[in-house]
Design a protein around this nucleic acid. Structure first.
Length: 267
DNA sequence: ATGGTCGACTCTCGA
């Protein structure tokens, strides 16, 4: 049995976020497993050495300018896979899908780090693509895992599933991260056998992971969204001791618009 | 309050 801290953080460019990450790692021990999204750099540019100095093994898959995911871990992964693995990437989207999903296994612990497409606008082709992406995540769970496995699905899922996950739900019904169709897709995924572990430990209002750069004093006024998620099977929910939202990272110089969410497990 | 910024890459797009 050991305490294992597992985190998700949309960094909006890993290279520009190194000072924030450095302060975080220096101030505390740093999570044991850190899932990043929107690293925005190709694999040859990934700042591997930075993370290795803090004792992390690096598993990453990126592309120039957009998307990109990474799993930094204090344990060496036993296996790693990229993308949804269903051979169904639509024309021209192969590269971006590989840069949106990483699956890593440590013994019997399975981690899926996902950056779900944002969806642009309801009337755009990107929105139905986003909905299909959720369906394909569900197919991946059905295909490769059991809901009795130790499994976490975490990352920027670009959906605020309930009214308390946004600041003003009444005017967000046509937002791609709050439309009923995307909430339905989220709950369909959940119903496979996942628990919203973040929400389980933080049931109150005002628990957000993202504060838009464009909203004046968004962090101070706490105008945000809960779109970064830590979902897990029941064995993982049972093993979770607590969840922390690292608001201080969002308050630092040159923050990401998202912050890190960290769950502690007794595994 | 996705209006207002930020990051990557050419100046405009994506979030």
């Amino acid at each position: 049995m050991a305490l294992v801290k597992i985190a998700t953080f949309n960094v909006n460019s890993v290279k520009s976020r190194l000072p924030v990450l450095k302060q975080w790692f220096d101030a505390s021990e740093g999570p044991d497993i850190l899932c990043l999204q929107e690293t925005k750099c190709k694999d040859s540019d990934f700042p591997k050495e930075f993370f290795e100095e803090y004792g992390y093994f690096c598993t990453f898959s990126g592309m120039k300018a957009y998307n990109g995911v990474a799993v930094l871990s204090k344990f060496k992964p036993d296996a790693a896979e990229f993308g949804l693995g269903d051979g169904k990437a639509e024309g021209g989207r192969e590269e971006s899908e590989t840069a949106r999903v990483i699956r890593v296994r440590f013994g019997d612990l399975n981690i899926i780090n996902a950056y779900v497409p944002q969806g642009k606008e309801i009337e755009s082709p990107e929105f139905p693509y986003k909905l299909r992406f959720f369906d394909r995540l569900l197919s991946l769970l059905e295909r490769d895992y059991k809901n009795t496995d130790k499994l976490l699905l975490l990352g920027d899922l670009n959906v605020a599933p309930t009214d308390i996950d946004v600041t003003h739900p009444e005017n967000k019904e046509s937002h791609v991260c709050f439309h009923r169709d995307v909430k339905e897709a989220f709950f369909k995924l959940i119903s496979w056998g996942l628990v919203d572990i973040f929400r389980l430990h933080r049931p109150g209002e005002g628990e957000f992971s993202f504060w838009d750069y464009r909203v004046k004093d968004a962090l101070k006024r706490n105008i945000g969204w809960r779109i970064d998620h830590i979902l897990g099977t029941k064995p993982m929910a049972d093993a979770c001791l607590g969840v922390e939202v690292e608001r201080e990272l969002r308050a630092m110089e040159k923050p990401s618009d998202h912050t890190a969410v960290v769950a502690s497990f007794e595994l």
